[in-house]
């Protein structure tokens, strides 16, 4: 049996995330859902090895079976990529050079960069300074950089929030492609209708893990009412797809 793409063992951040364990196999696109302040960003940052925890409560995070904390810095860059929910760029690097930063851990500058610029509709912006982009454009730059790392584990914090429907669907398509190629994509989102179409869901509430598994099992009408305070009804409505 191949090791899980991501496994968390009793990880916790005081005041934000109660101890939880989670094991996610590779080849999936996994959504992290929950109301505001439920710990989605914290969970993703912990999974990315960015919050090692304090003292004895060291968080045990494993990527492809190996302890993340034990890996050398460059190897960490090659194993897992993380993007923040909101990007602020203080310096005017060009879009292309920021995407090329994803190749840092590999020591090259080019590989896959042109392709990703095209896939994320950034070709026309390639020479623009990143501090003069809209929120959605910045988000696509971050995602392109994360994918440029070639890291099998991709952890994205609300990647779709600032994107228009077309770009959101394209990012979703890229996520599926990455998963099919043997990667694991875990990202947080608020759109429960979209979440219903993912491979797995992780539901958080108040820093606690409420449920994890297939979307239909996680997002039952009762649970949606209890956690989100909204009524869930399944009915045909507006559905969007790439042409």
């Amino acid at each position: 049996m191949s090791p899980a793409g991501l496994s968390l063992h009793q990880v916790a951040i005081r005041g934000r995330l109660s101890p939880l364990s989670l094991e996610l196999p590779t080849g999936l696109v996994v959504g992290v859902v929950g109301p505001n302040g439920s710990g989605k960003s914290t969970l993703l940052a912990v999974a990315a090895g960015l919050s090692p925890g304090e003292g004895r409560e060291r968080n045990e995070v494993r990527w492809q079976g190996d302890r993340a904390a034990g890996l050398p810095a460059l190897e960490r860059g090659r194993r897992a990529a993380w993007t923040p929910a909101e990007a602020r760029f203080e310096f005017g690097f060009t879009v292309r050079s920021v995407v090329a930063q994803g190749r840092y851990a590999h020591g090259d500058d080019e590989r896959g960069v042109d392709d990703l610029l095209a896939r994320l509709d950034l070709r026309a912006l390639a020479d623009r300074p990143v501090d003069r982009l809209s929120g959605g454009e910045r988000q696509r730059v971050l995602l392109a950089r994360a994918l440029a790392t070639g890291a099998p584990l991709q952890l994205w914090d609300e990647p779709l929030a600032p994107l228009d429907p077309r770009h959101a669907l394209e990012v979703l398509a890229l996520a599926r492609e990455h998963a099919r190629a043997g990667g694991l994509v875990v990202f947080s989102l608020h759109d429960l209708r979209l979440a219903g179409g993912l491979d797995r869901l992780v539901l958080l509430e108040g820093g606690c893990l409420r449920a994890a598994g297939a979307p239909a099992k996680v997002l039952t009408p009762e649970r949606v009412r209890a956690v989100f305070g909204v009524e869930a009804r399944i009915e045909p409505g507006l559905s969007l797809s790439l042409p």
Partner: peptide, 23 residues
């Protein structure tokens, strides 16, 4: 020079891209 590029756009981002931020 190169790791400084990454750091100048965000500490956590740089770390996740493979920069030994502490050092």
């Amino acid at each position: 020079g190169r790791p400084m590029d990454l750091l100048s756009l965000g500490v956590d981002e740089a770390r996740s891209l493979g920069v030994d931020v502490r050092r």
